Amino acid sequence: MITYAIFFAFGCYGLGLLMNLWRLARGPGRADRILALDTMVINVIALIVLYGIWQGTAVYFEASMLVAMVGFVSTVAYCRFILRGDIIE
Rank of each mutant, 00 (worst) to 15 (best):
I2W: 06
T3D: 09
I6S: 00
F7A: 01
F7E: 14
F10T: 08
F10K: 12
F10E: 01
Y13M: 00
G14I: 04
L15H: 00
G16S: 11
L17N: 04
L17K: 03
L18V: 01
M19P: 04
M19E: 13
M19D: 02
N20A: 09
N20D: 14
L24Y: 15
A25T: 12
G27V: 03
P28D: 15
R30C: 00
R30A: 14
R30N: 13
A31R: 12
D32A: 13
R33I: 12
A36L: 02
D38P: 04
T39K: 12
T39N: 13
T39S: 06
M40R: 00
V44D: 03
I45A: 14
A46G: 14
A46W: 01
L47W: 00
L47Q: 00
L47M: 00
I48Q: 07
V49P: 10
Y51V: 11
G52F: 06
W54L: 08
Q55L: 15
Q55K: 05
G56Y: 05
F61Q: 06
F61S: 09
M65N: 05
V67W: 02
A68Q: 13
V70Q: 14
G71K: 00
F72N: 10
F72E: 00
F72V: 07
S74P: 01
T75Y: 10
V76C: 04
R80T: 15
R80E: 02
R80F: 15
F81Q: 09
I82T: 12
I82H: 10
L83Q: 09
G85Q: 03
G85D: 03
I87F: 05
E89D: 05
